[in-house]
Design a protein around this nucleic acid. Sequence first.
DNA 1: TCTTTTGGTTAGGACTCCTTACTAGAATGT
DNA 2: ACATTCTAGTAAGGAGTCCTAACCAAAAGA
Lengths: 372, 372
Amino acid sequence: MSDPDRPLPRLAMLRAMTDRAVLDHVFVHNRTTRAELAATTGISKPTISESVRRLETAGALRATGTDQTGRRGRIATFYELAADAGRVVAAEVNQQGIRTVTTDLTGAILAADHHAPDGRPMTTAVRAAVAAASAGGPGPIRATAVSVANPVDPVTHEVVALPGSPFPEGTIRAGEIGRDVLLDNDVNFSALAERREGAARDAKSFVYVYVGAGLGVSLYVGDQLIRGAHGLAGEIGYLDSSGATLAEALAGQGFGRSDAPSLDVDAILTTLSRAAEGDAAADSRLRQLGETLGRAVAAICTIVDPDVVLLGGPAGSRPELVAEIRQTVIAAAPGPVRVEAGAVTDSAALRGALLSALDHGRDAMLAAVAEG
Amino acid sequence: MSDPDRPLPRLAMLRAMTDRAVLDHVFVHNRTTRAELAATTGISKPTISESVRRLETAGALRATGTDQTGRRGRIATFYELAADAGRVVAAEVNQQGIRTVTTDLTGAILAADHHAPDGRPMTTAVRAAVAAASAGGPGPIRATAVSVANPVDPVTHEVVALPGSPFPEGTIRAGEIGRDVLLDNDVNFSALAERREGAARDAKSFVYVYVGAGLGVSLYVGDQLIRGAHGLAGEIGYLDSSGATLAEALAGQGFGRSDAPSLDVDAILTTLSRAAEGDAAADSRLRQLGETLGRAVAAICTIVDPDVVLLGGPAGSRPELVAEIRQTVIAAAPGPVRVEAGAVTDSAALRGALLSALDHGRDAMLAAVAEG
DNA sequence: TCTTTTGGTTAGGACTCCTTACTAGAATGT
DNA sequence: ACATTCTAGTAAGGAGTCCTAACCAAAAGA
């Protein structure tokens, strides 16, 4: 792994920085030319040319045609990522089964799959699904990310089993699924998706509140996720709500399951639709739900003062509930806060896992180029 | 300021990194030699020599004697920071007046002063105190940090006036005190002191709770302070506590002033001492205070899951109160949390302001060297 | 006195990057 | 048709930083 001969520790860093600048540009503008690279990065043309040549011989880039737009001057040659530069795999595990997606390093989807729950142990099923998603494509798998519905310990990378959790199995270790697997919470991954390409793109800090079968919160400050010392940051089911925990309070309002921090999504959704039909009792229960959740969100806002609060999940993204929560938060939090529904509604956790896998996969490819 | 000719944008970064490595080593081991620098930084001896020569001619370093420990081999020449490399000023503003301290870039104290409140407007008095602390020493003032008792907006650097705040004046702008002034909250600065040289030295994340005339919280995650989008992070006086705000609840227990989020420190301290003398009623009120504060701290722990919670301030650092709060927090927070008293008791805010000024002052000197 | 040890310098080379000048090739203008 | 203009990329030369290896200087130990 590490060279016995390290001839240029510091100077090599400069070279790696130029390579990174080139690749970073390729990741967003899939096709590019040497001239465009030099112009946008500010690096000189000869240096860019050398970097491109290096990356091409290393198998990362590939010349892929010429610029045929009838423009004056010499025709430019396009470069893009080589087809076999690598792939990444993302998987989402929940009660509906296992969903996987495989993309190349640009993020273009190569395959997607879904496995309904069968009798097998969860770890076995996940390992098989990831192996199937990894098989038979061009280039090596550079990274794998798996989203689960439970908190994940940031140091052991092991799924933390909370009492009464809806997650079907208490212990999954990243090492049992494959090597270099990024295992994380679905709420964290969903928040990442919102951060990168959702409603929190421009926020310096934001709070993502997931209201679904689970109830969880992710905090982002800058581009940093606050995981907590024991991976328990954002487990707001344990927040105090007028003497009881928030989960207990919600259960007492008829929105919880008998087993603790799990919510009854169907109950929430039927209440929402009945309130919309004019049912006064349902409307009252909706207000009560919004106020209970809103007070918890207001506490978070008082403590971390985020730019924006995003609500997600099958219940949290419903506009009626968003409006109720917003009202309570604005009344109770000291500063001005925006409370909105998340923008990434379609399997946000899988999307976030993919984004995370892409980050790491791209880093891995760059490291491979630098090594060899 | 900026060169019209920028001959080496990238290569110059390497050189700056070497200089920074040398200076960083000098900042902690005041005296050092070229050989020691090469050994500890891993940079080659010729490169270190060149950097030392550069820093010496720029006026940052100074040869200051030779190694006289009867050791074999050639005698080493010691280098340390030049006396006129620069100074920094820190000031703490509170109801007792203005306290200032001036140090060189190693942190050695050159002067300290205290100004009791006079009739003058606060901004005028602070400006005068900072000017007095800056005058007549060797080398330029590289940075100035001022600690105030109110929250500071992170973008405008203006003191935010909260209703009923104990801070005597609502608006101070950093620009009105001097140029390049770091203006921040006393709680934030105290937390920085704990982070660097107090009980949170080894913590990855921690919460600092100040209980004194003001009531405030600072959150550190890694080396990053969570300020909040509007500078209001940690204003827990507004937290909900059984229907009222925390400040109101504390006032209702007899620990507050009539003007809102300000605490009556004397009332807390007398309750503490009476409870220690066996007064049952005082003991009951102490337990109630500990539980009220503990529930707020537990909410913070549930949301951010820190490594450790440090309590500071004239009331917060009292061991009896720490024990009460700890008991409530451990019972209510989901994960295992350490709750301790802060270790920096003697004017922590001023110490933190000084540390912050040192950070920026050292950076400023390095930038000055790089400029030429 | 000779050897060893240690701090530091010198010499030479490797590497990265930059500026300037140049070439190739296509569209445009006359 | 032919020169002009414009663009992509290459070539040459030089500057700057860093590294290794060898060397020098001075003091302690044998």
